[in-house]
Amino acid sequence: MRFASLFLEPRNGDIANNRPLRKALSFLVAVLILSIVLFASFAALRYQWNWEAAFRYRLKFLEGWLTTLKISSVSFIFAFILGSLSTLCSRSRFLPIKYLASLYVELIRGTPLLVQIFLFYYVIADAANVQNRYVVGVAIMAIFSGAYISEILRAAIEGVGKSQLLSAKSIGFSEYQTFRYVIAPQALRSSLPALAGQTANLIKDSSLLSIIAISEFTLNAQEVNAITYSSFESFFPLAIGYLIITLPIMRLSRYIEESLRYDT
């Protein structure tokens, strides 16, 4: 019993029992279990590791990783602008605009990103005569992510309590002032965790841009793969490369969530 209690979290978050060493021990156990499963799988595969070949292409990995980072950040900025616009439109009293926004959100959220990439790249970008595939890639990711951000912001705005709106009304705020000083600051804050999560999604989803030959992280890893006749030696760095970006973002998201919980 005493042994098992080493791995148990205290029932009521008792700070005195909250020992960092015990936590580390449990974490190690979790890592150990995961490693055993992985090693066992690869042992069964009898895979011949060849890290040297992959290592020779380390710059290609780095370039791809940086491209992914760049595409994702620029996409996120445009996605946020697009999402905010769409949210504003969805609150419009002018119905065609309102329906346009809801069509955008529903069509994008209801179809696979892969389909959107093909449609956008081979039909729309072609018709609009956009040659630069990176511009197309950023546009696709911004449009895709924008629909999700729009929903996040809409939910956050609707989450601002009715009593706040009544209060804004009572002090004589106009609709614009109510939005500017009451709704927007609170909605933005409460949507931060979800927005951070959406950023991580955007980064991972941008791997699909490899199918239209944008040399981001995933495509470069696939190329190393093809050149060196290896497979896992390029996929492991790929996974780790994404984790280097997404883990801190998810941590940040969790942190914001926790810190918002304490002051309403």
Binding site: Q164, L166, S167, I171, G172, Q186, R189
Partner: peptide, 16 residues
């Protein structure tokens, strides 16, 4: 409403 003041049961102050 600009000329009057209103106080609510649940205070309704802006929390942010």
């Amino acid at each position: 409403r600009k000329q009057v003041g209103i106080v609510f049961q649940a205070y309704n102050l802006f929390p942010h």
